[in-house]
Simulated assay, not measured.
Amino acid sequence: MTTTTRPAARVPVRSAITALAIGAIGALGTTGAIGAAASPAAASARPAAHAHDSIRNVSVKGCRDKTYGQVPCGPWRLAMHSGKTVTFTDALVWPRDAKGKTYTDTAAPIAVSGDGHSLAYFRKSDNRLVVREMGGAVHVMPELKGRSVTAPMDLILSQDGRRLLVGYYGTDGERRPYRVYDVSDPGQGATLPKTLANASLSGDGATVLGEIVTDENTRTLATYDASGSEMSRVEPPQVVVNNSPYALSSDGRTVAVVTGSGGGARLKLYDMVEDRMVRSLRVKLPAGGTPYMLDWTGDRQVTMHVDRGHTMWIGQFDSETGAGKVRDTYAKPKDAFVFAACGG
């Protein structure tokens, strides 16, 4: 689940409060406020995927500005699957550099796990990157020294929120290698090759998939385990790398990609180990939409987000038959400067 913080675009929500934490504020009404973590005793409970009060999407309001046209004017808002909107005050709205300078013309990165139960963000109190679970547990990530806070940044949480993939630029303008962390025990994380781009996590979060541009200007796909060791590398068919988004299954080898649109869309499966297209299935997507996110949410289930401008459409498809169903549709906030949806 890649998410890059840009105005009115998808944010790095794959893109951290728990059912108990949110339940505790239910008495506040439709809009509640969350700041400090809930009781640590609640951290052990992890709700079922997309249970009520898991996070559906995150946004921050945009306000007019004489200099920049529009700027974020926070705080962050969590739209929940229960229909509530929760004000989230713990996360930075405007990024701050190491010297404490605030940049009000852009939004700080934020990411949501696919199951909607975790948030990755920069904490307002100390500018540290943290992952907050629903239920109260807050995991502090290593400091990203020398990070440019005005350059795009990738924050990608696994479906279950247990792994975090981070990509950023330094103040020298150079892109730093991706790092992957075990959220509960991050240490210094595992460093991936600097040549790796467009990285994402597999359905189970155990494998990193990314692109490497070779000296011959060809694009290869490569996978790495959580320690940073390369598992496979292949030059795939153009139909795979020339279409986006694509997603890696929990088997660490099967890549799903959607081509075409509307009633002519097809779900294609590519096996990286055998270097062959395994399957091409006709799937029905809504007309007039743009593919936003693709995720493996089961051994044979692929979930597709389609951005239709003012609305988001989410469909689930069987990767063996192509049979599909609509899981959810919702209206996107019209006033959002930044919007980030959960993945699966």
Rank of each mutant, 00 (worst) to 15 (best):
T102V: 14
S113V: 05
W94G: 03
T104I: 05
P109I: 06
D97E: 06
F88W: 15
T89M: 12
A98P: 00
G100C: 07
T87I: 11
Y103P: 07
R96D: 02
G83C: 14
K101G: 01
K84Y: 00
W94Y: 07
F88R: 05
D97A: 02
S82Y: 01
D90S: 12
A98N: 10
T102C: 09
P95D: 05
Y103A: 06
D105R: 06
R96H: 12
T104C: 00
A111P: 08
F88K: 08
T87C: 08
V112E: 02
Y103E: 11
L92Q: 13
S82E: 00
T89I: 11
K84P: 00
V112D: 03
G83F: 15
A108Y: 00
V86A: 06
D105V: 01
S82N: 14
A91R: 11
T104A: 09
V112Q: 07
K101V: 05
K101P: 01
A107S: 08
A91I: 14
D97T: 03
K84V: 00
T85K: 13
A98K: 11
H81M: 15
V93C: 11
K84T: 02
A98V: 10
A107I: 04
T87N: 09
H81N: 15
V86G: 04
S82K: 10
D90I: 08
T104R: 08
A98S: 12
I110Y: 04
P109S: 09
K101T: 07
T102W: 05
D97K: 03
T89S: 11
W94V: 10
S113Y: 10
L92W: 04
L92D: 10
K84Q: 14
K84H: 13
I110E: 03
A98M: 00
H81K: 15
K101R: 14
A107E: 00
V86L: 15
I110H: 02
A111N: 00
L92F: 01
T106P: 04
T104H: 05
W94Q: 13
K101C: 02
K84E: 10
A111D: 06
D97M: 06
D97Y: 01
W94I: 06
T106N: 05
I110K: 03
K99G: 05
T87D: 06
G83I: 04
P109W: 03
K101I: 02
D97I: 02
V112M: 04
W94P: 09
V112T: 13
W94A: 14
G100H: 05
I110S: 03
H81R: 15
A107V: 02
V112I: 15
T106K: 10
T85H: 09
K99Y: 05
G100F: 06
Y103G: 01
G83M: 15
D97L: 03
L92M: 14
D90K: 13
K99Q: 07
D105C: 04
S82C: 09
A111G: 15
P95L: 10
T85F: 13
A98R: 11
A91Q: 06
P109A: 04
P95W: 04
V86H: 08
A91H: 11
T89C: 07
D90A: 12
T104S: 06
K99M: 00
A91C: 12
L92E: 11
D97S: 03
K84R: 15
A98Q: 09
D90N: 07
V86W: 12
T85P: 04
P109H: 02
S113F: 11
S113A: 15
V93L: 01
V93E: 07
D105Y: 08
G100W: 13
